[in-house]
Design a protein around this nucleic acid. Sequence first.
DNA 1: CCATATCATATGTTTTTGATATGTATAATG
DNA 2: CATTATACATATCAAAAACATATGATATGG
Lengths: 306, 306
Amino acid sequence: MDLRHLRYFVTVAEEGHITRAAERLGIQQPPLSQQIRALETELGVQLFRRKPRGVELTDAARALLGDARRILGDVDGALAKVRRTARGEQGRIVVGFTSSAPFHPFVPKVLRVFRDGHPRVSMVLEEGGTADLVAALREERLDAAFIRSPVPDGEGVAVHALLREPMCAALPAGHALVRRTRGRTLRLADLALEAFVLYRRVSGPGLYDAIFRACHDAGFVPRIEQEAPRIVATLNLVASGLGVSIVPRSLSAMRLPGIAFRPLARATHLTAPIGLACRTVDHSAAARNFVSVVRRKAREEGRGGS
Amino acid sequence: MDLRHLRYFVTVAEEGHITRAAERLGIQQPPLSQQIRALETELGVQLFRRKPRGVELTDAARALLGDARRILGDVDGALAKVRRTARGEQGRIVVGFTSSAPFHPFVPKVLRVFRDGHPRVSMVLEEGGTADLVAALREERLDAAFIRSPVPDGEGVAVHALLREPMCAALPAGHALVRRTRGRTLRLADLALEAFVLYRRVSGPGLYDAIFRACHDAGFVPRIEQEAPRIVATLNLVASGLGVSIVPRSLSAMRLPGIAFRPLARATHLTAPIGLACRTVDHSAAARNFVSVVRRKAREEGRGGS
DNA sequence: CCATATCATATGTTTTTGATATGTATAATG
DNA sequence: CATTATACATATCAAAAACATATGATATGG
């Protein structure tokens, strides 16, 4: 059996005429007669009754016609689908997040942009620590991940810097500094004597080290009172009055009760990056498309926002 | 595109291995490599990543694999269906009836036998007068018809005699003869003076003429009071007391109120035939099967019943 | 670093497909 | 009723496709 046989058969059945069908198929009549006969022989079934003015379908042919049409249509559909998948217009991608990433408006925005541009690509979102995300990326359980670390590069995984956002101080609502700084920025030195709550270095060394360095530049060594596994947990600890913290500014959108956010003075140069981790060679076209959409959007954002 | 390509593709995808797939397909490895490459070129899509220990499916290949399997299965299914149709195990037949035929138990019985033996053949039943049935047969709107006429043969339509059943007299319930013949047979001569209700000669000349001839043999010319379009209508007229009639015995199973049936004396040799009309050359295997089942069953019945 | 496994390439052979020329049968036509 | 036209079948040849064999390239694993 061969798709050619089905195509020839359908055309002959539609024309009721071998010669005309051959014309439509762009071949000569004798080969078409032969192919039809070959099909009949293979099936062991007569498909057409040869009349002096054309051919007539048998019951068997009528039974086959519908199926043949459907099969040919299915084949076309399948091929189109493969091409779409290869172009990345169809498929599935799994996107990972560091817990704090989705708070920055850029992330949900770019997800929506991609979804609108690739409606046949289904997206699965997954939260996790930076290390887990990178491992998952390497094991192909993930196609890309929004992370905050600037440099867990290497071994098949690359991180594209997308944008940086200022950080801000998170203070317990009743703290003395809250009143004193109402409507003003805070200098890092103001926090020199405070207890700090930071999220664990292993979970994301990038931010941790950056904060440490900034404090050092401001002339003090932060007293780390407590570490939390995630940024959100950090905020909860701050809310319970265990200390102050420094977090990406987008977190302030949370409006947690018991927490007051204060911008930091510009001079600190303390910013939190958002990066997109992905495989250096990625076989999934959908994933490649996703990465390029995100990076392009980030560049546009950078121009528009600065 | 070619079914061979799909078959090769599915095998390679399942084995993850061109060499092993070639083995399973009964061909050598180089042609298989070529065919896969040709398929990729035609699609403009890479389907496999060649690794030193086999090949790996791309997203596109995974997308195609399901469709390819389904299509190959559909093709097999379609071919099987064509063969079944050609053998008459699948399809549709339209069977006609003269209105009185289904009263004889043979008819429903043989229909059930055929249905049990050919579960994939759907049957459509159609009632009509003998002339209509034969015309429909000729125009291929019908595949076979149970009729009572012995001889509307000719022009592509043949009638196979199936069996004969005795006829009986149908009398209005209050008629004097009913009481006089309780538990006995009736001789035709007893009806010499009665008014007759017969169904129209044009609707079925066979029975009409047979009855006329039998009366003639019994020494009288029946007085036809009324004609009805169908046998069932005839009985209704008898029930209203318009006259007596002579009908196939199987009609007595109706147990109409107002009608008494009386067997006729054997000597009358008045029997009603049941025949099966069909085309002399029939292209539908299902129809041919139906005719042969009915005829075989009739022969068995004839042996068993006599 | 060598042996092994696996896919790719090159080249020749076989099979399949299609084209041309011709034959045959049936319906339409004068 | 003979003739013509139409359409399918058959025969033969040419072209293309598929396959086989031999060999090369490459990466893995001991």
